[in-house]
Design a protein around this nucleic acid. Structure first.
Length: 484
RNA sequence: GGCGGUAUCGUCUAGGGGACUAGGACACAGCCCUCUCAAGGCUGGAACACGGGUUCGAAUCCCGUUACCGCUACCA
């Protein structure tokens, strides 16, 4: 690539930003950032019936969350109506397009007839060929008409960046409408007009657009514009091999935000759907993604979206992201979960980072991580029923044991080595394994059966709170042993 | 139906004529580590859609078949 490319992502605001769109946006962004090119965002809101402001907002939010920043001003396709009309009329004037007075109803009927006759419907250009005087009188009468593109003879092809040479015989392309009878443009015209106006040099999009491409190339030529390079990315499928849709569960990028996926993990995962850096490289930072990204690694085959692998990858990012960056991302979640306040956590950043180091490898999602944080932030300990049932089988015995543990710990230094020595000695004195001591303690201290190492927990909870929790557990167990 | 695209473990993929007894990752199973849970380490099962060519030699190149997907709108 001699000059840096100008790319764009052009979603239509007819719903949330789904993962397929996000992947397309990501690839465009990656290539722009890699090459020093530009990445533009254009909202294709020409379908006024289906476009909504909420959807537009969701697209901005999704892009922002993913960290896909765009260059130049966002453009709205609907704002370019005048140019679209101008281009359509220029084609009409040059003879590349013609007026068609056939109504929608007539077209429907023609299609039904063809279907009934077992034939495929083709638009017959002769339908629109009116004698000059009739044409003029219908124009004078103000009859509505569409503008159709006159598809020339021959074949239309291009060298696709991912697929290589692709060619369509023009005879298989109907004369297609470029301007509706209400004067609004049809997709193919609007896209080409806008891409020419914004000097897009590389059109990278889903391969469901492959069959639109010859039409668009014809339009570029008729408009006298230089062709961009085309790159058609494979689709993203659901686990059943069908195009990803709502019934596959979470398909909006906002869903993954809410599920506790990190933006970098999402980008990393999405990047690997339809692209490979070659070799065994998988977990990559955003910068590595940019560094390694290349058109050579683009794949042709549709990929199945595997949420389980996404979670694994998120776990990898959770464990590897620099602690400060992770902390910054996490704080709002902590506050929202009511575990702390921005002020309170700012006062004990060091303690929090130590805790975060312990928990980050044990969680696959931000939500799991936040849930695991609870016992260290909130004073009240909620005993998990299963954990209590399993680790405190005999309440009276457990109470007595925890009382002994509490006494040993209270006597010594609040330091891992000393505490471990004391508790192992206790185990030996009683002839029981440390697991028989640590597990009941774990429940008393955190309420759950799975946590970081017990001494890390003791340190993270702190001396006073730990002793208080052991006391509380003793009281709780004594009470239930009497009740039982 | 027509046209176009695609085809390696269940999934994501490496592979671009001999280095392939087809490699890695997720998931799964077992083991190790171990106070629990993770993480980590080790081991295992698991794939070149099918049929023809080309070639001394094909997962890799060509053709056909099959399957799947997309388009075939006054949707985008």
């Amino acid at each position: 690539m001699i000059t840096p490319p100008r790319l764009r992502f052009a979603p239509s605001p007819t719903g949330y930003l789904h993962v397929g769109g996000a992947r397309t946006a990501l690839f465009n962004w990656l290539l722009a950032r890699k090459t020093g090119g530009k990445f533009l965002l254009r909202i294709e809101d020409t379908d006024r019936a289906r476009s909504t402001d909420d959807s537009t907002r969701a697209i901005f939010e999704g892009m922002t969350w993913l960290g896909l920043d765009w260059d130049e001003e966002v453009t709205f396709q609907g704002a370019n109506l005048a140019r679209h009309q101008r281009d359509a009329h220029a084609l009409l004037a040059s003879g590349a397009a013609y007026r068609d007075f056939t109504t929608g109803e007539e077209l429907d009927r023609l299609r039904k007839d063809a279907e009934a006759a077992g034939e495929q419907f083709r638009f017959d250009r002769r339908l629109a060929e009116l004698p000059a005087d009739e044409l003029q009188s219908r124009l004078d009468r103000g009859d509505p008409f569409t503008i159709r593109f006159r598809v020339p003879e021959g074949a239309t092809g291009w060298v696709d960046m991912v697929h290589g040479q692709i060619e369509f015989p023009n005879k298989d392309i109907d004369d297609f409408i470029i301007l509706r009878s209400d004067g609004t443009p049809i997709y193919n015209l609007a896209v080409v007009s806008d891409d020419i106006a914004t000097a897009i040099t590389l059109v990278m999009r889903g391969d469901d657009h492959i069959s639109n491409t010859p039409k668009q190339i014809l339009l570029y030529r008729a408009l006298g514009a230089a062709l961009p390079t085309f790159a058609h990315l494979p689709m993203i499928l659901g686990s059943d091999g069908k195009k990803l849709s709502k019934r596959h569960g979470a398909t909006a990028v906002g869903d993954y935000h809410g599920l506790g996926i990190l933006p970098d993990a999402m980008c990393n995962f999405l990047a690997l759907l339809g692209w490979s850096p070659g070799g065994d490289r998988e977990v990559m930072t955003r910068q590595e993604l940019i560094d390694y990204f290349s058109e050579d690694g683009l794949l042709k085959k549709a990929a199945v979206f595997d949420a389980t692998k996404l979670e694994w990858m998120n776990g990898q990012h959770l464990a590897q992201t620099p602690i400060d960056a992770l902390d910054a991302y996490l704080r709002p979640f902590l506050v929202r979960a009511d575990l702390t306040t921005a002020e309170a956590i700012a006062e004990r950043t060091e303690w929090w980072h130590r805790l975060l180091e312990l928990l980050r490898v044990r969680a696959r999602t931000v939500n799991e991580l936040v849930a695991q944080c609870r016992p260290y932030f909130v004073d009240e300990v909620l005993y998990d029923a299963d954990a209590a049932a399993k680790q405190w089988k005999d309440p009276a015995a457990s109470a007595e044991l925890l009382q002994a543990v509490r006494e040993r710990l209270a006597e010594g230094e609040w330091e891992a080595g000393a505490m471990e020595t004391a508790l192992r000695a206790l185990g030996e004195a009683r002839g029981i394994g440390v697991g028989k001591i640590f597990q009941p303690m774990r429940v008393a201290l955190t309420g759950v059966a799975a946590t970081p190492g017990i001494f890390d927990v003791l340190l993270a909870v702190g001396r006073e709170r730990s002793l208080a929790r052991l006391d509380a557990a003793v009281v709780h167990l004594t009470r239930s042993s009497i009740a039982g």
